[in-house]
Write a protein that binds this DNA or RNA. Structure first.
Length: 120
DNA sequence: GCCCTGACTCTCA
DNA sequence: CTGAGAGCCAGGG
C-alpha cells in the first residue's frame, strides 16, 4: 500500500460520514467533532482529497459540508458547486442560489451522540 | 525558513 | 442579514 493518506484526513472523512441524510454541517463543526479544533480550512482541503470512488467501501458525503454562513463554499457556477447543490436537493435539502436554510437543515448532534463518541 | 494561498470563522458596522 | 477586515492552520514554492 503506497497510500500517503494523512491520519487527519481519515479522521475528517470518518466524521463527515456520520452526518445524517438530509442534514448539513459546517467545516468548523466537522473539525471540532473530528478532534481538530481550529482546522476548519483543513477540512475543506481534506474533502478535496476524498477518493472519487469513496473510502473504505463507503461514500463520503462531502456535499453535506458547507461553511458556517450556510452557503456552498465552491465557486458559484463551478461543476463541483452544481454537483453539491444537486446532491443536496436529492436529499430534500432546500438550496436557494448558493444558500441553505441552516435553521431547518443544520445538523445538531445530540448530547447522546457526543457521549457516544467519547466512549471510544 | 519565509511568503503566499485557501471548499474557513469570528467580529464589527 | 450582508459585507469588510483580521485571525488561524497547514501545505507548497
Amino acid at each position: 500500500m503506497t497510500e500517503t493518506i494523512k491520519p487527519q484526513y481519515r479522521q475528517i472523512w470518518q466524521t463527515v460520514q456520520t452526518i445524517p441524510v438530509g442534514k448539513v454541517a459546517s467545516y468548523g463543526q466537522i473539525a471540532d467533532l473530528a478532534g481538530l479544533p481550529g482546522r476548519a480550512r483543513l477540512v475543506g482541503k481534506a474533502l478535496g482529497y476524498v477518493p472519487k470512488s469513496g473510502w473504505q467501501g463507503q461514500k463520503v458525503p462531502w456535499y453535506r459540508v458547507i461553511n458556517s454562513q450556510g452557503k456552498i463554499s465552491l465557486p458559484f457556477g463551478s461543476k463541483g458547486f452544481e454537483q453539491q447543490k444537486q446532491l443536496l436537493q436529492n436529499e430534500q435539502v432546500v438550496v436557494t442560489g448558493c444558500r441553505i436554510k441552516l435553521k431547518n437543515f443544520q445538523w445538531q448532534p445530540s448530547i447522546d451522540e457526543l457521549l457516544f463518541k467519547l466512549q471510544f
